[in-house]
């Protein structure tokens, strides 16, 4: 697809990022021509969606079920207090539109399930997985691999965060890392917004780099797990090998 031309308004809005090395107007046009699915727009995914909207991704598909609760508000920074009891995606859509009305926002008031995973992934060029349940993440991974779309998986716990990029057929996928839904994960996790937002920001940057083709694939987190701990500010990346027996990507060639 030919990336769309930029309008004078867009050239002004994005002026400060057009100065980024290896980006420029060509990168901006690629962002404008791209669509990203963000699965759940809570602490991590909400931050990712915010930065993708600010950067000018053409279309965002945000999926998250349920109504806003008071105890969401310590981390779900797309939400507003006046929206408690109303659908989360509505609050998120309003905030994203207020930030950047040029971005097309599609809301889906559902979480990822076996019934909707393929359809949701089909609506976007790239997937950001940020759900608090492995079943949803692994479903998105399976569909992203099937449809050969890049996936950015991003997660946190306490003051720790992890981000990994999956390029189907080229790098390890999430099922290479987690061959079965982990039995011990408890959905209730300690979280500061400052941590979840950091993870979401890193995920958004990986998505922007992939779409706009900034840097090389090896320079990002393709096939590498970033893991960090903000307690001692330690950051490390760990190469994750593909599993030949992976049930999702084992048979896939690049």
């Amino acid at each position: 697809m030919t990336p769309a031309e930029l309008t004078p308004d867009e050239l002004k809005r994005y002026q400060w990022q057009l100065w980024v090395r290896d980006f420029g107007q060509e990168g901006q046009r690629r962002l404008k021509g791209a669509s990203v699915l963000v699965s759940r727009i809570g602490g991590v995914g909400g931050s990712a969606a915010l930065h993708l909207a600010a950067a000018g991704v053409g279309r965002l598909v945000i999926a998250h079920a349920g109504n806003l609760r008071l105890d969401d508000l310590n981390r779900q920074t797309l939400m507003t207090t006046d929206w408690i009891g109303k659908p989360r995606v509505e609050s998120a859509e309003r905030r994203l539109r207020e930030l950047n009305p040029l971005v097309e926002i599609e809301t889906v008031a559902e979480n990822v399930s076996e019934a909707n995973a393929a359809g949701l992934v089909a609506r976007a060029d790239l997937v950001v997985a940020a759900a608090p349940l492995f079943t949803e993440r692994l479903l998105l991974n399976r569909e992203a691999v099937r449809q050969r779309k890049p996936l950015v998986d991003c997660a946190m716990y306490d003051l720790e965060g992890r981000v990994m990029v999956v390029l189907p057929g080229q790098t390890a996928c999430l099922a290479c890392l987690y061959p079965e839904p982990p039995a011990n994960w408890k959905r209730e996790f300690p979280v500061f917004s400052a941590v979840s937002s950091t993870v979401g920001s890193l995920a958004a940057m990986e998505a922007i780099k992939l779409i706009a083709r900034i840097g090389s694939a090896s320079g990002g987190l393709a096939g590498r797990l970033l893991t960090f701990d903000l307690r001692d500010m330690s950051f490390r990346t760990i190469a994750i090998a593909r599993r030949a027996d992976c049930s999702v990507c084992g048979d896939l060639r690049s």
Partner: peptide, 25 residues
């Protein structure tokens, strides 16, 4: 590598980091 955990020998001074899965969103 998952398939080599049983056969991977450790050496004095090795640092072993254990990362259980996380999915906080």
């Amino acid at each position: 590598p998952a398939h080599a955990v049983a056969t991977t020998s450790l050496q004095d001074g090795d640092v072993v980091l254990l990362l259980p899965p996380i999915a906080g969103g």
